[in-house]
Simulated scan of single mutants.
Amino acid sequence: MRVSPNPKLKEILIQKNVGVCCVCKKRGLGVHFHHVDGDNSNTVEENLAVLCVKDHDLHHRPQAYNEPNHLELTEVEIREYKRSWEAFVKEASQKNPKVFAVLNTYGDYDRIHSLRLIFQWDDEKIEFERVFHLLGGPMDLLLDKVLEEIVWVGKEIQLLLVDSPLEIEYCPCCNSSYSNTINSNVTKKLSSTSWKQDSICTIYINPMQPSLAITIFLKDDMIYSGSLHRCKNNTLHYICDNFEDSLSIFKKNKRKNTGNKISKQDFNGLGAW
């Protein structure tokens, strides 16, 4: 026998999911209260997931959808969506949340044509994202929508901006565009309330050869490590957790000073006098 959730339970679930589907997070859609284990009489909070009409139907009738790149909504997947989204909403309401909004811009410095707002955890996991394009309105309006979206999730969420416009890169298997997140080490620093007191930077210099190592700790947690050394091919080689680069070293030609004075005539035709 099917047992529908009472009004109080519905209100709790709506608040924990800020009124949206835990799978797609799209606003303005009607939602259902789905019995995750398939038992319609097991109407308890832990067994109810907030799903939009489409995702609810997708779970029950996956064969009706011709979407080659979608993940089928199994019981296990719905439970994980529910757990992650409700945890994200709860964290976003905290005073100093460990979740962030990251704004990617696409185009060039003269013309930004689209924005991607990414909501991520401090371990770089993306919870959900929104895309805004100039076809949807002028840039001022799009920026207002970005800020409104952040406030909707949590007023304490920090907004981080990727510092330069990005080229759009596509995944070779599903042709969807990549999202650029903020490094987890950066987010740990930004979300730490005791960074000034508990952060330590160590620099080790090897006196036997041109090299050094840098480590940064937050209390007992090492959040960054990198090393710089001079290679045999006369390059500076830098390696850290998620970055590696080399820079060639060029010798400057030093002009020997003969002590001779240069007269005004020596500059004739050069426009330097």
Rank of each mutant, 00 (worst) to 15 (best):
D123G: 04
Q94F: 05
V53T: 11
C52K: 03
S177D: 12
E244C: 11
Q15G: 05
G226S: 12
K196R: 00
E86D: 04
G38C: 13
A92R: 08
Y204S: 14
S248C: 14
E127T: 10
L142Y: 06
L143Q: 11
Q120R: 01
H70Y: 08
K8E: 15
S164L: 02
G136Q: 13
L135S: 15
S93N: 10
C21H: 02
L13G: 01
W273M: 09
L166I: 04
F100S: 03
E77W: 03
C201M: 11
V3T: 15
E67A: 06
R27W: 10
F250P: 11
E156D: 14
E124K: 01
I12R: 05
L71Y: 05
D140A: 15
S184Q: 09
D198L: 15
D37V: 13
N185R: 03
I205S: 10
W152S: 04
E167M: 07
R61E: 12
A92Q: 04
Q94A: 02
T105W: 00
C52V: 03
V153S: 01
L117K: 00
A87P: 00
I223H: 06
V23N: 06
S263D: 13
S227E: 12
H113L: 02
Q158E: 13
P207W: 01
P172K: 00
D37G: 07
P165H: 04
K256M: 07
W121N: 00
Y81E: 11
K54G: 00
N104V: 08
V76L: 03
L190W: 05
S191V: 11
S263V: 07
Q120W: 04
N40P: 12
R83F: 12
H59N: 08
G154K: 05
K95W: 02
R2N: 05
D221Q: 12
I118T: 09
